[in-house]
Simulated scan of single mutants.
Amino acid sequence: MATPPSEYAMSRTPHFQELRMASGSDNLQGCFHLLFTQQYAEIDGLINVLCEKRDDLFKKIERMEKLVEEGEGLCAFHDSGNVGLEFMKETLKTDKKVLAALTGLLDMACEGRREKRRHVSRFE
């Protein structure tokens, strides 16, 4: 077992001391394992939320596309129909951009999760 940190080390490394206390170990391997395990869990939770949001937005886009399709036949015969249809198309275009950005963020989060998994396994 490693020797406990000196007063000097404790005063110069407050964040590592906090990590050491949380892990209950003076061993750096245990400290790093806790840190990377927590980060992995946080990223995994983020991925779950992002997947849910992506799926919900995808369904919303599908519904909006159907509304636009129906509206193109219906709205031409109403005074405010064309304006409403243009707004729906504008919203649909923006939602598709958000979906693309969300998908990119999800890809980055998955890459981060793979990285953290590698970090965790190194200190197991």
Rank of each mutant, 00 (worst) to 15 (best):
F32Y: 13
C31F: 07
D55P: 02
V49R: 05
L67F: 10
M108H: 13
E111I: 04
F36Y: 14
D56N: 14
R117S: 15
D26R: 09
G112W: 01
Q39E: 08
R20D: 01
S23V: 00
S25D: 11
E70V: 03
G30F: 13
G81E: 06
G71N: 01
R54C: 01
S23P: 01
K59I: 05
E70I: 06
Q38A: 09
R20A: 05
L105W: 12
M21P: 01
K97I: 14
S25E: 10
A100N: 13
L57G: 02
L19I: 04
L57V: 03
E65N: 10
G24D: 04
E124L: 14
H15P: 00
E18W: 02
E124W: 13
R63M: 10
Q29K: 11
T13S: 00
D44L: 09
E42G: 03
E62H: 07
F87S: 03
E42F: 05
G45P: 02
E86I: 05
R12W: 03
H119D: 14
T94K: 13
D26K: 11
R118K: 14
L105K: 15
M88K: 04
A109T: 14
L35N: 04
H33I: 05
F123A: 11
E72C: 08
V68I: 13
E42I: 04
I61S: 00
L50V: 01
S80A: 02
K53V: 06
F32D: 01
H33S: 11
E115S: 15
E65F: 01
V98N: 14
A22V: 13
L105G: 15
L85T: 00
R117K: 15
L57D: 06
M108R: 15
K96F: 02
R118H: 12
K93D: 02
A76L: 05
H15L: 02
S11K: 03
D55E: 06
G24T: 05
L106E: 15
G30M: 13
F77I: 10
S80V: 03
R54N: 06
N48A: 09
D107A: 15
S11V: 00
C110Y: 07
L92K: 02
F77V: 10
G45A: 09
L67A: 11
S25I: 08
I61T: 06
L28Q: 11
T103W: 12
D95F: 08
K89D: 02
Q29L: 09
K59L: 10
E86Q: 07
K93V: 00
T37L: 05
L74Q: 07
